[in-house]
Nucleic acid binder design. Sequence first.
DNA 1: GGGGAAGTTTACGTTAACGTAAAGTATGAG
DNA 2: CTCATACTTTACGTTAACGTAAACTTCCCC
Lengths: 128, 128
Amino acid sequence: MTKKQTYSIGELAREFDVTTRTIRFYEDQGLVSPARRGQTRVYSPADRVMLKLILRGKRLGFSLAESKELIGMYQPQSDNRHQLLALQSKIQQRREQLEQQLRDIHAMQLELDDAEQRCVDAMNDLEK
Amino acid sequence: MTKKQTYSIGELAREFDVTTRTIRFYEDQGLVSPARRGQTRVYSPADRVMLKLILRGKRLGFSLAESKELIGMYQPQSDNRHQLLALQSKIQQRREQLEQQLRDIHAMQLELDDAEQRCVDAMNDLEK
DNA sequence: GGGGAAGTTTACGTTAACGTAAAGTATGAG
DNA sequence: CTCATACTTTACGTTAACGTAAACTTCCCC
C-alpha cells in the first residue's frame, strides 16, 4: 500500500495556520501547483513540503521570490557547466546570509539576556 | 576629551548602505530622533546605534514596529510590577522566536549542503 | 429538497516600507 | 557672485503579500 495521501486546501490551511487565500495566492505566484479533481484543488505530500519550505523562508524574512529561488536550488536540473557554477555561487551567497543571521540572532540573545536581568533587578528593587 | 562625534544623514546612509529617504522614514516612524542644527539633522552615536539595531532586525525579518518594540525592551523604565511581568513575557516570546529561527537556519544549511553536493556531482558527471 | 460546510472565481482594498520627483535652502570652492 | 553639493519639505507612486467581499457550485445530511 503506497501512502495515497492527499490534502484539501482547508486541511493544509489549518495545519500551517494560514488562510486558504494565502495558499491560493502561492499558487498564483507559481510556488505550488496542486492537482484538480473537477474544480477542486488536491494537494500532494510534495505540495505540502513546498508549503513548509515557504513558511520556513517566511520565518527567516525571505520574500516569496527568494524562497522560490532557494527551493529551486535544491534540484539542479542543469546540464550546463556555466549554470552549475552560477548555482554554486548563489548557494554560497545564501550560506553567508544565513551566517550573518546567526550572528544577528546571537547578538539579540545577549541583549535579551541583559534586558531580562534588568527586569529581574527592577522587580527585586520593588520588593524593597 | 569626550568623543564629540556626530554624523550627517549622508554619512550614516553611506555607512549602512541605505538611502537618506530611509533614514528620514525611520524618523517619521519614531525610531530615531536626531538633533537639529537649524534645519539640518545631526545624529548622535546613540542614533547611530539605533540604526544598527533596526537594520539588524530587518536582516532577521522583523518589521519596524517589532524592532521598535524590541529596542524598547532593552531599557525597562517601568516601576510597575505588572508591566515588568508583561515585559518578561515578551522577552520570553522573542527568545522562542529566535530559537525557531535557529532551527530554521540549521535546516536550511543542511539543505544547502545537499544542494551543493548535487552540484558537485553534476559537474563531475559533466567531465565524463 | 432545504440547508450548511467547504470549495471555487473575480476583483477591489489594504499595509509596510520605502522610491521618486519637485522645489526650495544653506554653504563652501573658485 | 556663481556654481555644485548636500541638505530640507511635501507629496504622490510602487511593490509584496495577502484581506475581504460577492456570487457561484458541490456535496452531504436529515
